[in-house]
């Protein structure tokens, strides 16, 4: 069964009056129930844009996004809940309140919020930090709180926008193995954006590779490794083979882009 279907998506916007920038085009993909899809591509390829369209945060210029059979025109966190790259916890609320924030927004009752939030916080292993403030937690822990906030909505799909992007290598590894446990237990579909080859393969049932801007899908790769997975998977020959393939694809894309000034970009 298909949870999420993207048909012929194109997003363009005006940077300056009269100047049009096509972020991505001709994007069609499906996410099956319980499937884990990762989207990888060079930076600036519009992969986050695609994810934002999937969650209804951004209206497509062309094409459409279907959830179940219905067109997505605005966010519905009960269907698809977001986990943002920069966690985006509310610094003025404690951890428990942050986990319950989505439910609060949805207008749930106080007892329901408290119960579900505590449950999900325990689930991500941070029950003891319920009354701490976000700034007292490490980046990795904050990201787990953001995941708990999304899970509290009991969505059918989790949309994760480079969830490990802001973390250092060490935290990524630990969070990675924690997250593997968490996400596998939830049995939900996940769409995860990343620019890390290892992450893209490690998590995925299916990898979607995007080209440089304007982003299009250039390849889909299935990863058949059994679950639950752990870090030892990275030493398997199949993993290495996919990694080489991805490296070539992305590398090719980077090279195709116009040469950039050394100190440019960010």
């Amino acid at each position: 069964m298909t949870d999420l279907r993207v048909e012929g998506l194109q997003v363009a916007y005006e940077t300056r009056p009269g100047e049009r920038l096509v972020a991505c085009q001709d994007i069609s993909l499906t996410v099956a129930s319980g499937e884990f899809v990762t989207i990888i591509g060079p930076s600036g390829c519009g992969k986050s844009t695609v994810l934002h369209c999937m969650g209804g945060l951004l209206p497509p210029t062309q094409g459409r996004v279907l959830f179940g059979g219905d067109e997505v025109v605005q966010p519905n966190p009960h269907n698809a809940a977001f986990v943002f790259q920069d966690y985006s916890l509310f610094p003025w609320k404690n951890i428990l309140e942050n986990v319950g924030m989505g439910l609060t927004f949805a207008g749930a009752g106080k007892t329901e919020i408290a119960g579900k939030a505590a449950e999900k916080l325990d689930f991500v292993g941070l029950g003891e930090f319920a009354h701490a403030l976000p700034r007292e937690l490490s980046g990795g822990m904050q990201q787990r709180v953001a995941v708990a906030r999304a899970l509290a909505m009991e969505p059918r799909v989790l949309l994760m926008d480079e969830p490990f992007g802001a973390l250092d290598e060490q935290s990524r590894r630990t969070l990675g193995s924690d997250m593997a446990r968490i996400l596998e237990q939830t049995q939900r579909s996940v769409v995860l954006i990343t620019h890390s080859l290892d992450e893209a393969i490690f998590w995925a049932d299916r990898i979607i590779v995007m080209s440089a801007r304007p982003g299009t899908i250039i390849e889909e790769i299935e990863v058949k490794a059994p679950r639950p997975r752990d870090l030892s998977m990275m030493t398997e020959p199949e993993f290495q083979a996919i990694r080489v393939r991805l490296f070539d694809l992305i590398q090719l894309q980077q090279a195709k882009k116009a040469p950039q000034p050394l100190a440019g970009g960010r």
Binding site: Y13, T15, A23, S43, G44, G265, R266
Partner: peptide, 13 residues
């Protein structure tokens, strides 16, 4: 580079 995207999003809000 992700700046264009995030700037765009910021603008939207």
């Amino acid at each position: 580079m992700a700046t264009t995207e995030s700037a765009f999003r910021a603008r939207a809000f």
